[in-house]
Structure formats: C-alpha cells, structure tokens
Simulated assay, not measured.
Amino acid sequence: MSLPSKAFQRWLHGVAPDASTSDVCRASGLKRTTLAQQMVRGKVAESSLVRISRALDVNPVAALASFDSYADLRGTPVPPTDAELISQIATMDLLRAVIARNDPGAPQHFELAAAPHETSVRNWVDAIDDGELRHRVSRATGIAPQNFSAHLSANRMPPELAVATAKEAGVGPAGGLIACGLVSPEEAGWPRGARRAALDRLGTAELVALAGERLQALGKSLHRQEHERNRTERIWENLG
C-alpha cells in the first residue's frame, strides 16, 4: 500500500511550504523522475517519504503516522519487548556474545551491527508469534498464508503488512518497520543501547540455544541456495 499522491502533496506542503519538487529531490537524493512517476501513478512509495522526511529533519515514523493508512503509528512509541530487540541482533553478534561469555580471553565488548540484518524480518515475526499470528494476520489483511511465508523467506515485508502484523501480535507498531529496513530503531523510538541491554539480560543457556537455532536456519538457507545454484548450472549444461 503506497501513499496517495494528493495526501503526500498536502503533507509536503505542510512541512516544506516553500520547497519545490527539485529542492526536495536534491536534498533527499531521490531522483526527480522517480518521484514524478510515483505522483503520476497516484501512489508515492513509503521509502520515498522516509528519504524526504530525513532530508527535511522530520521523523519518518511521525511522517508516516500523518497518513490515515498508518494511523496505528500515532501516539507515544510503544517500548519493544526483549524478544523483539534480540531479533534485531545479527547472528554473528550472537555468536560473539556466546564466545565472550565462555572465554574470558575473548573481547567482552563489541559493537553490534546495525539493524536490520539478513534475517531481521523472519526473526522479528518469530519473536512475536504466539503460534497463531500468521492466521490472524491472514484474516485481518486478506494475505494468503503462503504469500506471508514467502515474504519471510525473502526477508522482506511491505510496510503496511509489517504494521498490521505488529497490531495482531499486540506489540509496538513500528517494530516491523525496523525489521524491514524502512526506519532505524532510533527513529522508531527504541532507546539507544536497548538491543545491547536485552542481550546482556539474556541467560547464557538461552543465548546458546538461540544462536544454535539461528545457525540451523542459516544452514538450511545455505543448502537451499546451493541446491538452486546446482540446479541452475545443470540447466545451463543441458542447454549446451
């Protein structure tokens, strides 16, 4: 679901009444032709709004919340759960933490990689899923369960689906926007250092188990990629 171009124009006039389209595109790094095409189609991408918001020093989440389709983002930011915070920690950082806790000679303090990471979307959904989340999201949005699963496998999710998923899970509406890379944790109101604090609160046994689950999932993904690569190579060989 993109943003209606007329509503976008009203928003832009409200936050930058004296700025021309050229000014906005130049400041945001967005191609003028790209924005023009979106305006002609009547649908402006959320990613375009976010880029323009940042260029104008407007919080992207607040900008999205000004549109009716993202009304769930309005109000005081809802604090993330520890499970959500940890879902946005990269697998390699979890492994570093495991080593640090079990080897006094290993570096005990290291910088966490920025969110999102390569499995952020799937990890976020797994962190908030009570076992029935996919079914509730399917009923609420009309998305087929297999299509929802396809988004998770590809580690991407449309912003409106991310917000709807958070709503059905009963967590803060901006968490999914972080997982899909649309906004940063700070822009969504997550406290600075919250991911590290959640990691430090995680018990060692839980940490090891989680790292093991992540590695197992990574292994399956790599096997699939290898299978697809071999299959493609065989097809090309048969084609001569």
Rank of each mutant, 00 (worst) to 15 (best):
L182H: 05
E206T: 07
R192T: 14
C25P: 01
R231H: 15
I89M: 05
A55L: 06
G14Q: 01
E118V: 08
H223F: 07
P77A: 09
V125M: 11
G203H: 10
R101W: 08
S153W: 04
N59E: 05
A188F: 04
L73M: 09
S53I: 01
L112K: 07
G14I: 00
S221C: 02
S153K: 15
N230F: 12
P145Q: 11
R41E: 03
P80R: 08
E206P: 09
I235Y: 12
T81H: 11
R101K: 09
G193F: 02
E84A: 15
A188R: 01
N230K: 14
A16H: 01
R224N: 12
T33A: 15
L3A: 02
G131Q: 10
G131R: 08
Q146M: 13
L3K: 01
G193M: 07
N59Q: 06
R229D: 10
R51V: 00
G142P: 01
Q9A: 15
P4M: 05
I178E: 02
K31P: 13
A174E: 06
S69G: 12
D82T: 14
E186Q: 13
Q37P: 00
A114Y: 05
E226L: 15
A16C: 04
I86Q: 15
A174V: 04
E187M: 04
P4D: 12
S5Q: 12
W11V: 00
T91D: 08
A113P: 01
P60M: 06
A179Y: 10
L202T: 07
P60Y: 05
A27G: 12
G42P: 09
G212F: 05
V171G: 10
P185S: 06
R96T: 06
R224F: 06
G189I: 03
P104A: 12
S184L: 12
E237S: 08
D72N: 12
A62M: 08
S153H: 09
A55P: 10
I128P: 01
Q216S: 11
A115C: 05
F110E: 03
K31G: 15
A194Q: 09
S138V: 08
F67W: 03
Q108M: 11
L215Y: 01
A55V: 03
G212S: 10
V58Q: 14
D93N: 13
R51P: 00
S47C: 07
S2N: 14
I143K: 02
L133T: 08
A162P: 00
V137L: 11
T141K: 00
G176N: 02
R96G: 13
H227I: 13
R229T: 13
M39R: 14
L202S: 01
R201S: 13
P79H: 11
S47Q: 11
M1D: 07
R26F: 11
G14E: 01
H117N: 06
S47Y: 02
Q225L: 15
S28F: 09
L49S: 10
G29Y: 11
A65R: 02
A164P: 00
W236D: 03
R32D: 07
L73V: 11
I143P: 00
L222E: 14
S20E: 13
I86G: 14
D129K: 04
P173T: 05
D18W: 02
Q108V: 08
S28M: 12
P80G: 13
E187F: 06
H13E: 12
L199T: 02
N59K: 02
D23R: 09
H13M: 03
R195H: 07
A16R: 03
L133G: 11
L85W: 08
